[in-house]
Design a protein around this nucleic acid. Structure first.
Lengths: 185, 185
DNA sequence: TTGCAAACTTATTAGTAAATAAGTAATTTA
DNA sequence: TAAATTACTTATTTACTAATAAGTTTGCAA
């Protein structure tokens, strides 16, 4: 199916946001590669904050589709797929969307913050459920409750996409494996 | 002792960097509160990247003093002090300097990146040593090697300063305690 | 006391930013 | 087929940005 201009702007905006940072790219960085004019971007997203809202919503949609696809798999495999997804983020030289928004948090309008909050709770909720299921099935071990474990896994893995930009690639695999080893019997 | 203008610029720059993001603040945001002119900031730091270098170097100095002061304390207490320091970062509505630089990484010049890399390795090295000592003394437990454990602790705690901007304060204490509980016998 | 360097200010520039108004072409709808 | 809507372009504005050149003040050193 053909990708609409609107969709292309969102995808490129997401790319720039996670590669350079929200305040490090401009509408010109979007319009030029798409061979459209500055004003065409403003037609779809009157302000840059409107674009940020759309990017956050887009991530919610993608995550919904992801979690539906994963629903039948067992907890262990769901977690592995989730961690591998973050590995692919790192390999494409991006950082996680949560961290990208978080560091520029106080330059975001409330409507953006709300969308980002909803996306983040979606991910934490999904992870918590997965962990609780794994615990109930006796596949996982931990002294902490499900949400705390979820927070630690999410923290570790999304910080890793940032940290390995500085320390180098080998550390990503270390951390990814340590998360699995720690949790899985 | 009186703080020099140069020092004030570095401190305010650091504050803005970690509250708003590197590309979200301007020289005007620095000169106005200090009641000096734009050009005075450029006198001390010809370019914004020069300021970023100075901020990173400043963090190395602070961390050096911190680690010297901690040298005599036992591993457990060093770790607790380290985690409490990150709690204070969160309470002052900032994020950790590593994450703040990492998300805007590709908009930073090589000279900045090098300084940030050196600071980061300083922290990871210090944490690794602390953990190895704790293991040798039988105070800590872990299946992973010291560097991997250090990476996980650092990831968890610095991501936390970002994550709790989104999810709220209560999650910070959860994660902080879980790091300690997991490691300490 | 002269000279000179440090730490600024005044004034300006060139470039880029987000944003908007007005116009146009193509498609859809009534 | 007339009218309205969609998806743009052209053209411009306002504001801000980092950066620099040239001049000023202050204190110290020769």
């Amino acid at each position: 199916m053909a990708t609409s201009t609107r969709e292309k702007i969102i995808q490129l905006g997401d790319d720039l946001l996670r590669k350079q940072g929200f305040n490090a790219f401009s509408y010109a960085d979007i319009s030029k590669p798409l061979h459209i004019k500055n004003a065409a971007v403003h037609y779809h997203f009157p302000s840059k904050q409107d674009l940020a809202v759309a990017i956050a919503q887009w991530h919610k949609e993608i995550f919904d589709r992801f979690s539906q696809k994963m629903a039948t798999k067992e907890p262990k495999d769901r977690l592995k797929t989730f961690l591998n997804f973050y590995h692919s983020i790192h390999l494409s030289e991006k950082v996680d969307i949560i961290g990208a928004f978080a560091t520029d948090w106080h330059s975001l309008e409330p409507k953006v913050q709300t969308e980002v909050q909803e996306f983040t709770e979606l991910v934490i909720g999904w992870l918590s459920e997965l962990i609780q299921e794994g615990l109930d099935l006796g596949q996982f071990q931990t002294n902490q409750n499900a949400r705390t474990t979820a927070l630690r896994i999410l923290s570790s893995i999304f910080a890793c996409t940032q940290l390995v930009r500085i320390t180098g690639d080998h550390d990503f695999t270390r951390v990814k494996n340590s998360i699995l080893e720690e949790l899985i019997y």
